[in-house]
Structures are given as structure tokens and as C-alpha cells.
Simulated assay, not measured.
Amino acid sequence: MRTRRAAAAVAPALAAAVLLTATLTGCSPIVALTPATHANDPACADVIVRLPQTLEGLARRETNAQATGAWGDPAQVLLRCGVTEPTASDLPCVQVYNTDWLRDDTNAPSYVFTSYGRTPAIAVVIDQRKLTPGLVLGDLDSVVAFTKPNGRACSSIEDSLGSTATPGPTPTPTPTR
């Protein structure tokens, strides 16, 4: 009788341990990131709690730093809220929906897009070999809206988001006789 009670008490704990082990072995490792300088800005918390669980078909991953996000395994999109706000720059500016982004292609084909004219600023690193930057930034536009406009705007907008394919000129039709 005592053995049955002991077995009955151990069984749920053992089942929980097996479930926990199975769950942990199926997870991707945590993405290690460094928090941005102003990651503790309350607006970053508003952004982070609204990040999508999937982004262009990539599952969101757990990160180890405040005000960050990552998607894909391996990570193909990284987000950090609270980066230093950019000032006027020689970097090209692109606009996706309601947000201006400065595009840094120093490490192309991985591009860093930093929101411009918004406080706190958000940096998004996108592996352009795998994803279209415009689609990713478009999917993030509704969460970037939780940052405040700061009065800055790009003076000129470029139409390239870092795509490797650049459209050529449209040919002029030749009349047929």
C-alpha cells in the first residue's frame, strides 16, 4: 500500500520532468544580443511586447537582452530597441509605410536599418540573402509606431532597400509596320 502511494506521488513529478526535458531539447538556443544604450526606455517595452511571433515565415526566438528580438533558426532578423538616435547622415534613407529607415550596407548582404525621426530608435539587421528587407520592415511598421516622432525626417528618399536586383530602364516600344 505504501509503495503504491509513493509511486502515485512520484509519477506526476516524473512525467513533468520528462515533459520539461522533451520541451527543452526541442528548443532553439537563446540568441545572444547586447542591449542598446537606451533599452530601458518605456517605449521599447511597448514595442517588444507587440513584436510578431512570426516574421515573413520565421519563428520568433528567445533573446538574452532587454528590448531585443530575433527571428529564424539561425537568426535572420535581429532587432534592438533603444539604439542611439541617428543624426543627419550620408547613409541612404528608405521609407517603408510610415517609417523612415537609414540603410547601412557596410556588411552587405546583411543590412542594418535604423529608424530615423523616431524616439527611441530601433535597429533591425536583415540577412538579405534570405529575406526581402521591405517586407520585414513593413511587417514591423505597426510596432515601430509605438515610438514617438521626433520631428526629423529624411530629406531625400531612395527607392532601394538593398535588393541585389536593380530594375533596368523600361524599353520604348518600337512601332511595327
Rank of each mutant, 00 (worst) to 15 (best):
P149A: 00
Y97E: 07
D73V: 07
M1W: 09
A75Y: 14
Y116E: 01
A123S: 12
T34F: 00
P86I: 00
P109Q: 11
D46E: 14
T176A: 10
T106S: 02
N64T: 01
V96R: 03
I157F: 08
A13V: 15
T21A: 11
R80Q: 04
L91F: 01
L91M: 04
D41L: 01
L79M: 14
R177A: 10
T37L: 01
A9Q: 13
G162V: 12
R50L: 14
L79W: 10
T119G: 06
R118V: 05
I122N: 09
N40T: 12
S115F: 07
D159K: 10
L78A: 09
D41A: 09
A16K: 11
P167Q: 10
T132F: 07
V143K: 03
L24I: 06
Q53W: 03
A15N: 11
P169V: 08
I122W: 02
G162D: 01
A88D: 07
S110Q: 09
Y111T: 08
P42S: 10
V18G: 03
G162T: 09
D159R: 12
T164Q: 09
V144M: 12
L51F: 13
N64C: 06
T114P: 04
G82N: 00
L79F: 10
R152E: 05
V18E: 07
T34E: 06
V94C: 02
T147Y: 04
T21V: 05
N40A: 15
C81Q: 03
A153H: 06
V112P: 01
L20W: 12
N64D: 14
A9D: 14
L102Y: 03
I122C: 07
L33A: 03
L79A: 14
D104V: 00
S142R: 10
L102T: 00
N40D: 15
P74S: 03
T68R: 04
T63Y: 10
L137M: 08
G57S: 14
G26L: 14
N64W: 04
A15L: 15
T34P: 05
F113C: 02
G168M: 07
A36Y: 00
T23F: 15
R60N: 07
A15Y: 02
K130L: 06
A13P: 01
T106Q: 01
V124M: 13
D73A: 06
P92E: 02
C44A: 08
R80E: 07
T166V: 13
P12M: 12
P52S: 13
P12L: 11
R129I: 08
V125A: 09
Q128R: 06
H38Y: 08
A7I: 07
L140N: 12
G69L: 05
G151F: 06
T176Y: 06
L131Y: 06
G138S: 15
P109D: 13
G117E: 01
I30Q: 10
I126D: 13
V18S: 11
A59C: 09
S160P: 01
N98E: 11
H38P: 00
Y111S: 09
A75F: 13
D73C: 03
T132M: 10
T3F: 09
V77C: 09
S163E: 11
V49I: 11
P29F: 00
S28I: 02
H38R: 00
P133I: 04
T174I: 15
A22E: 11
A65K: 03
